[in-house]
Computed example of a mutant assay.
Amino acid sequence: MQSTPGFLLLEDGTLFRGQLIGPSAPTVAEVVFTTNMTGYQEVFTDPSYRGQLVVMTAPMIGNYGINAEDPESGAPQIAGVVVREISPVHSNWRASGDLASWLTGAGIPILTEVDTRRLTRHLRTAGVMRGVVAPGDTPSAEALAALDACPPMEGLDLATVVSTKEPYTWGDASAPHHIVAYDFGIKRNILRLFEEHGCRVTVVPSDTPAAEVMKHAPDGVFLSNGPGDPAAVSYAPDNIRALAAEKVPMFGICLGHQLLGLTFGGRTEKMPYGHRGGNHPVQDVESGHVLITSQNHGFAVAGTAEGVEGVPELAVTHVNLNDGSIEGLAHRELPIFGVQYHPEAAPGPHDGRPLFNRFLDTVRARGGSGQK
């Protein structure tokens, strides 16, 4: 595929040159890195990556192409991709095409031949920041203006942007359990796993009032992953609080977990460079067992293994062994819990998948049968 000279300019002035494939207009977004070795199609279609330029630390991607079975949403969600090398050929029995054509067909720029080791080390040291990908050897006035106008991730409600606009259903209509899922940027494999666990799912827009959710007579409510600043999703805590008052079992993943923290009085904070990849060690506080997890987040609930700041109702159930950040919460009295990592990861570690069984245990304990 034809390429032209291009560059990535970070907001601190650091410049990385490479070869640009795809759209030539300047593309601006927060620049983040992921340590995933496989699963690039799932990464690129994950709505939690909305509004981000993703740096792949694996030196070559694209070697197994793309297919129609693995996407986590209907289209690529990322703003752009930065890689060392994109494979010119692909080989896999499930492949329906090559990665570069699929991305550029969706208007996603690819900057190749970049020293991604140096770039990752810089982001890890200086923190993630805004950047612009554009053609040429040096930044043009247009590229500089675009970068200057790019908003920071703090304060951005991107969940509303990626959420479904209308409710829809997933799974067997005769399944024994009925889950209502708030779509803040839900990944399809979450829906697949609920279906595998005997659930039918009604997916609703992110701003659906609690009263509307209760009209669906849910056995449980799920709070999905999603992009952006959790504190900017200002309408969510009131709805979650109203559902909690009904003692409906609730389970949150990633952004959903962060919203649980905010609902009960905690706060969230921007992390220096976040957690993104499929190899993050997390400890279960109660058992001491260590799980290897898949993660994708740039914000975290403030607190330590001892607790969430100012929120005695929430117990910390999991902590990250790299930096001690909170990875899991559970309400001490209500059937509500959440985790920061992705137990539904595909591909990725499956250590956290029993959490779906734990959630359904709370549903069954409440008497949820789906036959209301």
Rank of each mutant, 00 (worst) to 15 (best):
I66T: 15
T208D: 07
E113Q: 15
N67V: 06
M271K: 14
G62E: 02
L10Q: 10
H216E: 15
I66A: 03
L111P: 10
F16G: 03
R192E: 11
G278P: 03
G105R: 13
S48M: 08
I186K: 01
P109S: 07
N36M: 12
A29S: 12
G51C: 05
N36C: 15
L243H: 01
T120L: 06
T34C: 10
L260A: 06
R17S: 14
D323P: 01
R94K: 13
G39N: 01
V319K: 06
V339R: 07
P71L: 08
T45C: 11
H280M: 13
H275V: 08
Y182N: 03
G22K: 03
P343L: 01
V285C: 06
G324N: 07
A242W: 05
F356L: 04
E11W: 06
V203R: 00
A75Y: 12
E269R: 13
S325T: 15
D137E: 15
Y49I: 06
I66Y: 07
L53H: 10
D284H: 15
W93V: 12
P347R: 00
A149Y: 05
G22E: 04
S325W: 01
V282E: 02
E69F: 12
P109C: 10
G256W: 00
T164K: 01
L260D: 03
S140H: 10
I21P: 00
M214Q: 08
S96Q: 13
V28W: 00
A181P: 02
I326H: 10
R188Y: 00
I78T: 13
S294V: 04
L123M: 12
F44W: 13
D284M: 06
V363I: 15
S101T: 14
A175S: 11
H280A: 08
D115A: 14
A143E: 00
R358H: 13
V308P: 06
L321K: 14
V203S: 00
N189P: 01
D70M: 12
A75D: 11
S24W: 00
R366Y: 00
E313T: 15
G367S: 05
A149H: 06
G13M: 06
I86T: 02
P139D: 03
V82S: 11
C254K: 02
E195F: 02
Y64T: 13
E309W: 07
I108Q: 04
S294R: 04
V201P: 02
K215D: 12
G278M: 08
L314H: 10
P59K: 13
G252M: 02
P5S: 05
I78C: 15
I110N: 03
D46M: 05
P5R: 02
T268Q: 09
V133H: 04
A211N: 05
S163L: 01
A210F: 02
